[in-house]
Write a protein that binds this DNA or RNA. Structure first.
Length: 616
RNA sequence: GGCUCCGUAGCUUAAUGGAUAGAGCAUCUGACUACGGAUCAGAAGGUUAGAGGUUCGAGUCCUCUCGGAGUCACCA
């Protein structure tokens, strides 16, 4: 058993014995002792002061005496202002180090037999992935990794939004203006090519709309329909959708295409399949660069009709009601929400209907105890309504639904806008961070003897390490501001900083192997330095950090832990002699410690999808 | 307007209700002629948006105010 649990139990027992008051052991608060005080762990005594009926320091002294008697691994204790500081004996730490030094799985929990589904990325197929997707993907991926380490069986899924108006716009645009351009004959990556035609469509539409606004028709409509004191500009901004549906030639073509798609028109289906396949091969490359993958894909074209049977059931159960026009609704006013449409009057489904349907088939297929949706927080309301609806329907999985919401990524100038061309493209960003890494590496000249392919791979690895760490270290809930001008750092609290500590360790271990040093030979080493203790305490904490990150769905905890551990290691490396250590035992101990740190860093960073370089 | 989230140093941020709010960037100062300087040490920088309250103890919980964002579609 972990020393912290032992302390908690001993404290609970002591309180019960001394003051005749029951205390739950896991409620006993045990912290790392802050640097300025003597000790390894500190127990907060204040909660027991009332039970004791004594001053905090006196109660702490009494509890401390009993706890030390109880636990042989505690070699001393002291009391400061209501905190009981405990010093753990060196033998405990050396034993701990022996236990983890060859354990590559250290930090992981045993399999718990529970299945968890994580949905993330879920792109539209009309344009390439961008910075917003990257945050989503990194969150989804690292949460999956963390849950796996915490003992769950994880199923990673994404929904491909492959149908609808957006892709039809790209299709119409390509057909009219594309002149048979393909990824092959143009050398343009498939998702970018399709995206380019989407952008072209939007710009053609805008031009047409601007021109139309000058017509007499338009002026008449403005005169007739504008609200009091509404400017022409404001009116036409609102009117755009209506115009697109009623007046635009391009709009008519899009609607016609969508209709023909729904009717399975072979010509449209072929075009649709061809262009989507271009996009998929483009996505595949991007996912590859990001180092992520999925276990199962759901295509919207195959699921968009789902959910209607649930609507029928819901009506029968009285959870839904039908309006006179035939549309079906749910009343969620008593839950603080609103009335929500779940089926249109014409019998077609809406977004939420589909989501009800897909959640059910996923449950039927995989029987997960939890389903996690990684979706930006602009959809909070949607998921609140969806989950509440499924609960009322009595779906068996309804209590295990989790919306892992995260803040949008914004530029210093505000939200990214496709129309304004301010979207930060995922592929461009990957290239940019690789370029920065290469630039910095060239200045250092450490890897000049590597062959070019190796160098390139290494630079990708470091650049991606920087980018991923940069994004993951921020708490998911916070909205993120990303400045493409400054891009990502490589110094300080960064991925490369952590990677560098690993490189240092790697170098030490290589030398130790050459010199045939046995890392186990440190039984007699008793002079554990503060820099060493800091590392031991951090390593000791790792499994509980993994557990917390899994419970909170918060990879930033792992990133912050990794940084703290790397920082402590850099300090240790700087202050303490390793190969020139005062004794062979000190050397063995420090090498074993270094090896353990390297292992844990690699393990932790792997949870974030960040690889470790051998050199840099 | 209703609901939800956010507000910590110039900037980016950390802190299961616990000790003196901890880092990084930027700024300034310094570091062993080798275990690699993508490092380390130090300086300066904070009324945790503001006001009340709960508590032995509040950046954290409650109330109000101010500021910002999202959402409130028969779009997805």
């Amino acid at each position: 058993m972990n020393i912290i649990s032992i302390i908690q139990q001993a404290v609970a027992q002591a309180v019960e014995q001394l003051y005749n008051h029951p205390v739950e052991a896991d409620k006993v608060l045990v912290n790392n002792t802050p640097p300025d005080f003597t000790g390894d762990y500190s127990v907060v005594i204040f909660p027991f002061v009332k039970m004791a009926g004594k001053a905090p320091d006196q109660a702490a002294a009494e509890i401390g005496r009993l706890v030390q008697e109880q636990i042989p691994q505690i070699r001393a204790h002291n009391v400061v202002k209501g905190f009981l500081n405990l010093e753990i004996d060196n033998s405990y730490w050396k034993n701990f180090l022996n236990n983890i030094v060859n354990n590559r799985q250290y930090g992981e929990q045993p399999r718990n037999g529970q299945k968890v589904m994580v949905e993330f990325s879920s792109p539209n197929t009309n344009k390439p992935l961008h910075l917003g997707h990257i945050r989503n993907i990194l969150l989804g991926w690292s949460c999956s990794q963390i849950l796996d380490a915490a003992g769950y069986d994880v199923v990673k899924v994404q929904v491909i939004n492959d149908r609808g108006v957006a892709i039809c716009k790209s299709m119409v645009s390509w057909k009219k203006f594309g002149n048979g351009q393909t990824p092959e004959n143009s050398g343009i990556k498939g998702d970018h090519l399709v995206g380019d035609y989407y952008v072209l469509f939007e710009s053609k539409t805008k031009t047409a709309y601007d021109a139309w606004q000058q017509t007499d028709d338009a002026k008449a409509i403005f005169e007739e329909k504008h609200k009091d004191r509404q400017s022409e500009q404001a009116f036409f901004k609102e009117y755009k959708n209506k115009w697109f549906n009623d007046y635009s030639d391009l709009g008519a073509e899009v609607r016609d295409t969508l209709l023909r798609w729904e009717n399975g028109d072979p010509e449209v289906m072929d075009l649709w399949k061809m262009m989507n396949n271009w996009v998929y091969s483009g996505f595949e490359k991007t996912y590859d660069d990001l180092g992520v993958g999925f276990d199962k894909l759901y295509y919207e074209s195959e699921t968009y009709l789902l959910g209607k049977d649930i609507v029928v059931e819901g009506l029968a159960k009285g959870v839904f009601y039908r309006k006179d026009d035939g549309s079906v609704w749910i009343d969620l006013t008593d839950a603080g929400h609103d009335h929500k449409l779940v089926l249109r009057a014409d019998g077609t489904s809406v977004y939420i209907t589909q989501d009800m349907g897909t959640s059910r088939i996923r449950y039927q297929e995989f029987k997960p105890s939890r389903m996690i949706y990684v979706v930006a927080d602009e959809q909070n309301y949607h998921f609140a309504v969806l989950f509440e609806t499924l609960k009322r329907l009595g779906e068996p999985y309804a209590d295990g639904l989790i919306h892992l919401n995260y803040g949008l990524v914004e530029l210093p100038t505000g939200r990214m806008k496709t129309r304004e061309g301010t979207v930060v493209d995922a592929d461009d960003l990957v290239q940019e961070v690789t370029r920065i890494a290469t630039e910095q590496s060239a200045e250092r000249g450490e890897i000049e003897n590597f062959d070019p392919a190796e160098q390139k791979e290494l630079m990708r690895l470091i650049g991606m390490g920087a980018l991923k760490f940069f994004i993951i270290k921020v708490h998911p809930k916070k909205k993120m501001i990303f400045n493409p001008e400054e891009s990502v750092d490589m110094q300080g609290q960064t991925g490369p900083y952590v990677q560098y500590s690993y490189v240092r360790i790697n170098k030490l271990l290589q030398r130790a192997e050459l010199e045939n040093i046995n890392l186990d030979q440190h039984a007699g080493y008793n002079n554990i330095q503060p820099q060493e203790k800091e590392l031991l305490l951090a390593l000791h904490q790792y499994p509980s950090v993994v557990r917390e990150a899994a419970e909170a769905y918060d990879p930033s905890l792992i990133a912050n832990f990794s940084y703290a551990l790397a920082k402590a290691y850099h300090r240790f490396w700087h202050d303490v002699k390793i190969f020139q250590a005062e004794s062979g035992e000190a050397k063995a101990f420090r090498l074993a410690l270094s090896k353990s740190v390297g292992q844990v860093l690699q393990h932790a960073m792997n949870l974030l999808g960040i690889e470790m370089p051998a050199r840099m």
